[in-house]
Design a binder for these strands. Sequence first.
DNA 1: CGGAAGTATGACAGTTCGATGACAACGCCT
DNA 2: AGGCGTTGTCATCGAACTGTCATACTTCCG
Lengths: 225, 225
Amino acid sequence: MVAGVLVIEDDDRIRLSLMLALEDEGYSVRGVSTAEDGLVAQRAEPADTVLVDLMLPGVDGFECIRQLRRDDDVPIVVVSARDDTHDIVAALEAGADDYLVKPVAVKELSARLRALRRRGRAVLSTVSTLVFGDLEIMPEAGEVRVAGVPVALTRTEFRLLCELAEHPGLVLSRQQLLQRVWEYDVGDERLVDVHVGRLRQKIEDDSRAPRRLLTVRGMGYKLHR
Amino acid sequence: MVAGVLVIEDDDRIRLSLMLALEDEGYSVRGVSTAEDGLVAQRAEPADTVLVDLMLPGVDGFECIRQLRRDDDVPIVVVSARDDTHDIVAALEAGADDYLVKPVAVKELSARLRALRRRGRAVLSTVSTLVFGDLEIMPEAGEVRVAGVPVALTRTEFRLLCELAEHPGLVLSRQQLLQRVWEYDVGDERLVDVHVGRLRQKIEDDSRAPRRLLTVRGMGYKLHR
DNA sequence: CGGAAGTATGACAGTTCGATGACAACGCCT
DNA sequence: AGGCGTTGTCATCGAACTGTCATACTTCCG
């Protein structure tokens, strides 16, 4: 299948020239002029990549990005006239993967699209939230929720949980955890047990019968998907 | 789980200011001034993300990117003074994930790093599976399933099964198994029998009529494909 | 058929391993 | 200084695992 790109841009001239240029590069392209149409189009027939302008009539680009992101893990590239750090940061935080300032060099745009595509479409966990059943981990926000309810973790507990969450389903040995969470080269492995115990009391319904943070005897611990 | 960044930049002033800025943003940072050092550092202790300048003494940035990419799937961000489409395209084609033109806004850099990490995360969770009919073995996950149902194995049983599974259909002698699973040079070969028996009770439907873990009289055991 | 060699298995005691509560040390804030 | 939350160490308990052995079973072959 040919790579499909959706262009969301209200200026007809720019939209058409972008579309033509991308077609020349071998992409299959669709274009719409409003965020609303873009969302509908993407939902109806998902493109591999979405190009979106920030200044759109009605629903603006930022909101458009958030909505796209909610549905899908599709790579989103912002193409905007505004060369302002605030806008760039805001767009990336909203969920965009790249940001280009107009006028764009088509060759560069194409190369960036390829780079994004190479990174691959993620399968799960679209947002920067790691989800394990009703356990949500927001590494950037430093927040953890169980069944929607925020849970207060200490720094060590949080880092331990993140480390486990970054390798869902994988067993991590006590040594590995010591190295990554504590940056110890050596150390008493029992230390890990203690913190796992404390973490369990906070994130498990019944710490006697853990359902998420599992012990693999003789090997280590893992976080169940 | 502190995000680790490796900065490869020959200009001391720029490198240090980048490092300081990133540290302020909460990253754990290392810096080197040549591509060679960068490659060594990354191989020794992989960072989560690599920042690299294009104009480096000796091995240049493009080559550095290619070499990093050969080893690893780490996100690579180019930070360069050159604002030239050819360079941008070449860097991305070489394997970079993003390209920023100096001087960079730290907030933007930080946001782009987060965007990259967010996208990269899904790649981490690959768990390999060895499949023998309805027997699934996930070595890194420390998990074994029979007909989709997880089965609890002890460490010895698990290692024994993995050893057999790594040589599908091959007969392994008791001596070989003792050496590889128990790291005994000598030992009572009957020990293997006992553990094979225990393993069978867990993974065979009828341990009297094994269908997967077969005895080869006079030779040893093998796992049937 | 009968014996020998090879294999399976149940029971048992010693050992290892993990969970946990208690506690002291530390840093942080007021 | 005093209070508070956090952290690392330790001792202990109980459960799980391991290796050994004795015994029972199978297979092979004369």
